[in-house]
Structure formats: C-alpha cells, structure tokens
Amino acid sequence: MFPTPIQKSAPWVRIGYKLLLPVALIAWLLPLIGVAITSVRPAGDLAAGNYFGIPSGFAGVENYSAVFANSPIGWYILNSFKVTIPTVIGAVALSCLTGFALAVYNFRANLLLFFMFVAGNFIPFQILMVPVRDMTLKAGLYDTTIGLVLFHVAFQTGFCTLFMRNFIKGLPFALIEAARVEGVSEWKIFSRIVLPLMRPAIAALSVLVFTFIWNDYFWATVLVQGQHAMPVTAGLYSLNGQWVAAWHLVSAGSIIAALPPVLMFFLMQRHFIAGLTLGATKG
C-alpha cells in the first residue's frame, strides 16, 4: 500500500493526520459551505454587510419557500427531470444494443465503429451547435424538452457504447458459445443471457448519465429559449440575473439545483465511481 499506512507511523503523526482531515475537508469545500450557510441566512444580514460571519438567525424556511414561491424553480426542476429521465432510459437502451454488437460479433467495421463512438464522445459541442439547432427548429422541437432529449440520447450513446462494449467483453464468452451450440437465437442470447448480466453496468451508466444531463448547461441554452422547457441549470442562471445581490436566494436556488445529482451520487456511490473510473485500472 502506498503511501505507508498511517497505523505504522508515530502516534503524533496519526493524531495529526486525523486532525488535518476535517480541516482539509472544510478548506476544500469552503465555497460549498459558504453557499449552504448563506442559503439559510436572514436577508437582513446581507444588507448589514454580514456576508461570511455567523448568521444572525436561521432563515432557511423563509429563504427556500421564497425561492419556490417567487420563482419558477419548481417548474425548472420538473423540466430537468423531463429531460434527464428519458435520456437515461434512451441512451442506456441504445447502448446495450450497440455495445452487444461491438463486443460479441467479429466483422470488418467493428473497431472502426467502436472508435467512431469513442471519438464522437470527445468532440466539442460547438461543431454540432448550428446544424443541430437548425434541425431541431425545422422538426418543430425547438424549445421543447423532447428536442433536448433526442440530442442527449444520440450524443450519450457514444460514451455509453464505449462503456457497455468493454463491460460485455469482460463477460465469459463461453456462455454465448454454449447458447449458440444449443441453437438459441441471437436476440435471445442478448435478452435472456447477456442483458441480465449487465445490471451493474446499467446501474453505473444510469447514475453517470443522470448527472451529466442534469448538469448540462450548453444545450439547455442552445435548444431552449422560453421558461416552459428550461432546465434548472439555465433557469438558475436567468434567476441570478433577476435576483441582483439577493445572494441568500441565489444560494438557496443553487442548493436546490445541486441536490438531485448529489443525492443520486450518495445513493449509488459505488456504481457512480465504477462508471467514472472505467479504464483507470487496466491499460
């Protein structure tokens, strides 16, 4: 193990380490802690210049209910769910199929297609912006959540295919061979044998895609204009423009917008990290 386990060090090092941990954490999360505290700070504190000191009281209930009552943030959150959930389902479903095809069959274009999906995943969004916006407009899907979902599904399929293909490659191939000998159809091999084994990969991808899409800001500003389809990232930014200097409201709004992916991360932590670190262990 590297570095040397702290248990082998002198007692003062051990104590020092345990004291340093919370201090380092607080320093690291200082921006977040500042925002969390401000979100429960009474408005009067800000007017009095008490931005980072001890709050004079707890105004969490007032601030958060003010955000929900005086702004469409509830609606924005709903829109984010309307974009995120169908995207997760669509991208995971499509990539189960493409991943299976690229992992199980040997055909000439296999590697070419695989690396096309991988490369697609790295390109800058800006090269897609003008044509995708134009296409979405012409299809009558501009300013709708469906327009966003369709794009996100297509784009995420690149990353998800990379993931699924590598995951299926790691499954025992003998299972598939045996089924073929038995005369099981290819579709049934996929749906009855491989798909049930893919559960951990599906879980990992779902959390990851959920976070990526929830946090998307670029496409939310390119493909959406009005409030009725705006996700919470773009919505928060426009609210920030309205709440000039009302930092307690901006903070409460930020916490609200950040909460769903944070919860998702905490609930599905192991899957999340497994997804993110794919490839970081073996070369």
């Binding site: 499509l94 990539s95 297609l113 096309m116 044509p131 995708v132 296409m135 369709l150 297509a154 295919t161």
Partner: peptide, 16 residues
C-alpha cells in the same frame, strides 16, 4: 443491433 444507436449518432453527431 447497431441500427438504432447508429442512426441517432449519424443524425445528431456525424452529419452535423
């Protein structure tokens, strides 16, 4: 197996 994913990818990534 590839068709649905590939069509979406062509339409929204490669062609653009």
């Amino acid at each position: 197996f590839l068709a649905p994913g590939l069509v979406m990818f062509l339409l929204y990534v490669l062609i653009p």
